[in-house]
Design a binder for these strands. Structure first.
Lengths: 142, 142
DNA sequence: GTGGTTGCAAAAAGTTTGCAGGCTC
DNA sequence: GAGCCTGCAAACTTTTTGCAACCAC
């Protein structure tokens, strides 16, 4: 199964005209094996163990290339910088993936989602939020 | 209504033994008036227009104090640094607010949420995700 | 050989911190 | 007046960039 994924990855690279390189293979393998969601630094530390010559800049460049090619997802629901909100009511967000604009949604149905039952019983849920990603009116025109 | 909010804010500060200062008032007013969710930089730019002597460091310190006192919410669903995931399937997240660990949830009910009807019809929704915040088993013990 | 990729180092972007001076109560 | 708060500047963290050398095809 693991080699399946690597094979698929190689195919995906080839079909996009991307060279198959040592750093790429190493970084992608770590992503496959990693439990949880690593940061660039996490991946760098991990990759260093086997390949100390791979640089942090390469990790960043490779991750960016993987995201651009839709082979890896960036888990930063909103965006890269912290934003603030003085509306402390329970509410959800509509996020434009192009201009990054955030709009609040007040919706009662979303405020009463069933709590999933197949999660670790020992995880104490305090809160949740739903984020809709999409493209706003202005960015659709552009 | 706006002065209501300011009055409430002043009360909240007093009840917590926080001084009522010019920068605090100015920054909080901007948060009240701001459409969308500003970053620290956004707030700084805005506050500069009326009060060019207020520094960016003060904006950061004030925001941190507001968040610590639960007067303002930080809109950074996961955390402060970008994380990656090579599981591109539709899934949701369980996030420990203490140790920042992220766990995937696969849950069919969550994959079929009703799209809220009271949002801008011109916003094209591409995807959505649900994030549950809470405290994991390990952090509850600590 | 050609062009895509890498590594290094420097820089940019965002955020935090220490400390002297100033302001609120 | 006491102690909290602010401004400045410097430091720190995370990410990006430029460019020469290198490697895959």
């Amino acid at each position: 199964m693991k080699s399946d994924n690597i094979d698929t990855f190689i195919q995906e690279c080839k079909s996009r005209g991307l060279n198959i390189t040592y750093p790429r293979m190493a970084i992608y393998k770590i992503l496959l094996q990693y439990k949880g969601h690593p940061s660039a630094e996490d991946i760098y530390k991990q990759v260093q163990k086997d390949h100390p010559n791979i640089s942090l800049a390469t990790v960043y460049k490779t991750l960016e290339m993987l995201v651009d090619n839709d082979l890896v997802a960036k888990v930063t629901p909103l965006h890269d910088i912290v934003r603030y909100d003085c509306n402390k009511d329970f509410h959800h967000h509509l996020v434009c993936i192009k201009c990054k604009k955030i709009t609040d949604i007040e919706n009662d149905a979303l405020n009463h989602l069933p709590i999933p039952e197949n999660i670790d019983k020992n995880f104490k849920i305090i809160n949740y939020r739903v984020q809709f990603d999409g493209i706003c009116k202005e960015c659709q025109r552009a």
